[in-house]
Design a protein around this nucleic acid. Structure first.
Length: 571
RNA sequence: GGGUCAGUAGCUCAGUUGGAUAGAGCACAGGCCUUCUAAGCCUGGGGUCGGGGGUUCGAAUCCCUCCUGGCUCACCA
């Protein structure tokens, strides 16, 4: 698609000595659209040229030739050179691109030939899937979708927490009290009770903790009893997790969790040994990272068994070999910042390519707190994702019952699910990743204002118009001059920038950029919708407005899909 | 204590990589349904951008320092 910013940069570049690519980064969008569509600030050159910014702007303006370009007007304001582009061209370029790409509008080939791994969700088995797991699951899925949309070969991995000392504990707890709990009926809840109980005992009695560690060691060594139990825990947990993944419509390309690397850690230790940097310390084997101003990375515990860092390293080695990734993103909460810094540092010793080394990136995000404080499985004050989703769906159902009692039962169910879950997803993805979140039912389940349902509602409005007119006019039947008012141009500018917004979201690994964009688009469309009738007598006007509605419909749907939000056809 | 992240309206948050008069939503006050869905639209009040220094044409944004809070700092993940 034609790039207006690029065009302006090219024109300025011709009359200055500044590189075109450099110029593009300087060009910005004015706050007030009355000032122009793009702005070139001249301040930064004032010192070098020893001239006032407005004089520089004046000189550039004199020299540039805009005849035959898409630039209509150049103004000087303050030290800015403000460019106004041809609105007709904007409308034409944007809608023709819509016609050209249709459902694929916004996709790009930016990532062609590149492979990116997104590791996300990664819950610990035998523990409840609570709202703390929601963020990694939703952010990760959104990033997965975003990269895929940009043409990357994308691999989504659920790095299950299915290994480690915690299972030594689980095994010990089960061995002691398993008969007292009804695991078949309510596996995770009952296993959690056992886990809480054994943890308490470990805290009291160091010897029990030692037994648990030993159990894990046995598990690693292939002990039959331990392995059978572990398999059982894993199976029942996955079954429960998939109830939630299905509700959220989450999919993975791989479920290779920690246990998968069980037989791959020896090689890691071997490689590290050969570097001569694996040293013994306090009985454990570590890589000293003092040079990098970090605490040491433990690779082998003093009892000889592995630790999560070892398995993460094995995973890096395996993934580098299997996928030869350009990037490997770890969507994990910021409490593990140090861990990943250490592991990425040690990964440099594994002999993997520089590309893979540099592609490792921890996508950290903020924690979820309750008003009362931190969530803790042990205290039993966790909010389970399933309960949250069910509550949301139920609240939406009540609203539908009031607003649209005539919908069929199936329709109500379908809409309640899409809107209820959409609200939760949007709420989670609408803020910057890094910020902590204080969980509150009424904030989470608010359906008015800047929320998921608002975007869905706007989509539904476009949808019902398109349904009413039956067909979308051909692009040849659209008179672009009918779409030159302020409201229409605001909508088209946003639609024009869709791909760019997705790219920004990928550069920053920040789905909230897309969430914000969808709110903006919904706002300008809602405003337009309120002021103008779309289905009108004047056929040419109607065709143009319908096409604009169609374009909005498409972008809202595709954008929401990237976030993992499904659109209801009506609501 | 060291490291690190955050602090913007009563609340929840944006702020296009240093640019023009700091913006939304919620809440509050008022207006708009005989019309393509009012989960909407329009209008209004609200600010020491945590405090103080500095860098420069220009700082919410960069540097220093202090305050407050989160996370983390050896065999949990």
């Amino acid at each position: 698609m034609k790039d207006f910013k690029q065009e302006i940069a090219s024109i300025i570049s011709k009359v200055t000595n500044i590189d075109e690519h450099e110029l593009v980064t300087y060009i910005e969008v004015p706050k007030d659209s009355n000032m122009g569509d793009y702005a070139f600030p001249c301040f930064r050159f004032a010192k070098e040229l020893k001239k006032a910014p407005n004089i520089i702007a004046e000189e550039i303006k004199e020299k540039i030739d805009i005849t035959g370009t898409n630039i209509e007007k150049v103004d000087i304001l303050g030290g800015y050179l403000n460019f106004t582009i041809s609105k007709l061209e904007l409308v034409k370029v944007t809608l023709e691109e819509i016609d050209n790409k249709k459902d694929d509008y916004g996709k790009s080939s930016l990532g062609n030939g590149k492979t990116i791994i997104v590791e996300y969700s990664s819950p610990n088995i035998a523990k409840p899937f609570h709202i703390g797991h929601l963020r990694t699951t939703l952010i990760g899925r959104a990033l997965y979708n975003i990269y895929k949309y940009l043409g990357y070969n994308t691999i989504g991995i659920n790095h299950l927490g299915d290994y480690g000392t915690q299972f030594g504990k689980m095994i010990e707890g089960y061995k002691r009290w398993g008969k007292e709990y009804n695991i078949e009926e309510n596996p995770i809840e009952e296993l959690t009770k056992i886990y809480v109980r054994i943890n308490a005992l470990c805290k009291e009695d160091e010897d029990v903790l030692e037994v648990c560690r030993d159990n894990f060691k046995k598990l690693e060594e292939g002990d039959k009893y331990c392995k059978e139990l572990w398999e059982k825990f894993r199976e029942v947990s996955l079954k429960e997790f998939y109830r939630i993944y299905d509700l959220l419509d989450i999919k993975f390309d791989s479920l290779n969790g920690e246990a998968f690397y069980q037989d791959k850690t020896d090689e890691v230790i071997d490689i590290l040994e050969k570097t001569g940097k694996l040293v013994e310390s306090e009985g454990a084997r570590i890589i000293d990272l003092e040079e990098r101003k970090m605490p040491p990375c433990i690779v082998c515990k003093s009892n000889g068994s592995t630790i999560y860092a070892t398995r993460d390293l094995a995973a890096i080695l395996y993934r580098a070999r299997t996928y030869n990734f350009d990037k490997c993103l770890y969507v994990v909460a910021y409490e593990q910042n140090l861990h990943f810094k250490q592991v990425f540092e040690v990964a440099k010793l594994l002999g993997i390519s520089e590309k893979c080394q540099k592609g490792l990136e921890h996508i950290s995000y903020g924690m979820v707190h309750l008003k009362e404080g931190k969530m803790s499985t042990r205290e039993g004050n966790v909010i389970k994702v399933e309960d949250l989703l069910k509550e949301s769906i139920s609240r939406v159902k009540d609203i539908i019952e009031k607003k649209n009692p005539d919908f069929t039962k199936e329709e109500k169910q379908d809409i309640a699910k899409k809107v209820g879950i959409g609200a939760v997803i949007f709420n989670d993805l609408s803020g910057a990743r890094i910020k902590d979140e204080i969980f509150d039912w009424d904030t989470m389940l608010n359906f008015t204002g800047e929320t998921g349902p608002y975007i869905q509602y706007t989509y539904v409005r476009t949808n019902s118009i398109l349904k009413k007119t039956q067909e979308i006019p051909k692009i040849e039947e659209v008179d672009f001059t009918k779409l030159l008012n302020e409201a229409e141009i605001s909508i088209l500018k946003l639609i024009y920038s869709f791909t760019n917004v997705i790219e920004q979201a990928s550069i920053k690994n920040e789905p909230s950029i897309i969430a914000k964009y969808l709110i903006d688009l919904s706002k300008v469309f809602s405003s337009f919708y309120n002021e103008n009738k779309i289905i009108v007598e004047d056929e040419a006007l109607q065709n143009a407005r319908i096409y604009l509605t169609y374009a909005t419909n498409l972008v809202l749907k595709n954008g929401a899909k990237l976030l993992g939000i499904n659109m209801p056809e009506k609501m």
